[in-house]
Design a protein around this nucleic acid. Structure first.
Length: 257
DNA sequence: ATGCCGTGGAAACCACGA
């Protein structure tokens, strides 16, 4: 089965591209981020007509996450990361899809760093680590997928020296991501391609896509129970080159049944 | 070093993104 993550940067504007990509690649489970739409403005009918059940957590203008599944309905487990009831951003949604648990996340950008936005990102990373640890304790097959806004290492950015002080690449952010891997999670794209340059995001400007000046910031972390089932992974780069594209490309893994 | 582009919402600009 195929599980994908895609930061759409506005689901209403991106709907034609999303539907075309769903039709062409037929992923079984899809995590979406940056819906940028209120709960009632999610295009549920069009997505249902494409063959997908969906749950989503919208927010006016910003953020917003969704989990799509074909074959079965995603059964919602939670729609916020624990640890801060005052955090009103729609950045996390979690569901059971058959025997699989899926966490879909949109981690804060954190720029400018230092500053309150960076502090919020670091707190969010701490909350994510705590929840991720709880999830692992169950021993279930779990995928944590989404836009992490974390460049894990130098190979994941076209020009590392230009990003050292950026909130996506600062040492404490990379350390927090590495801590997730130490818990037992596997970065499925990097596991599949240990030495390749793989990007999932390219800026809209400066011809970054045409120059392949990208970042790898969209990730699928899999729990130990899934490692032996990982048979492939990839990025649908061509989607980034379409007219009216998101600045992110869909990123996916393949699991043996 | 940089939001140069894109989206959304409010209001003909601004917030936000990475």
């Amino acid at each position: 089965m195929r599980i994908a993550t895609f930061n759409v940067n506005g689901i209403r504007t991106r709907l034609p591209i999303l539907l075309r990509w769903l039709d062409e690649t037929r992923p079984d489970i899809v995590c979406l981020q940056e819906l940028k739409a209120q709960q009632e403005d999610f295009p549920a009918l069009a997505i249902r007509a494409a063959g997908y059940h969906a749950i989503w957590h919208g927010q006016k203008s910003f953020n917003g996450v969704a989990i799509l599944a074909r074959g079965g309905e995603p059964v919602e487990r939670r729609r916020a990361l624990p640890g801060d009831p005052a955090d009103a951003h729609s950045r996390y949604i979690e569901a059971a899809v058959g025997p699989l648990l899926v966490g879909c996340l949109y981690l804060p950008n954190g720029n400018p760093a230092p500053g309150p936005k960076f502090d919020y990102k670091m707190r969010w990373l701490e909350r994510l680590a705590a929840h991720a640890q709880e999830l692992l304790a169950g021993g279930d097959p779990i995928v944590l997928a989404g836009d992490f806004n974390v460049i894990p290492s130098e190979i994941d950015v076209y020009k590392p020296e230009a990003w050292v002080n950026d909130a996506l690449f600062r040492p404490e952010v990379r350390a927090a991501f590495a801590e997730l891997l130490r818990q037992g999670w596997t970065d499925a794209l990097r596991q599949t391609y240990p030495n390749q340059r793989i990007y999932t995001f390219w800026d809209y400007f400066r011809n970054h896509y045409q120059r392949d000046a990208g970042l790898r910031i969209d990730h699928l972390l899999i729990s130990p129970a899934l490692c032996a089932r990982l048979t492939g992974a990839g990025v649908d780069r061509a989607v980034r080159g379409l007219e009216k594209a998101s600045d992110h490309a869909p990123t996916w893994i393949e699991l043996a049944d």
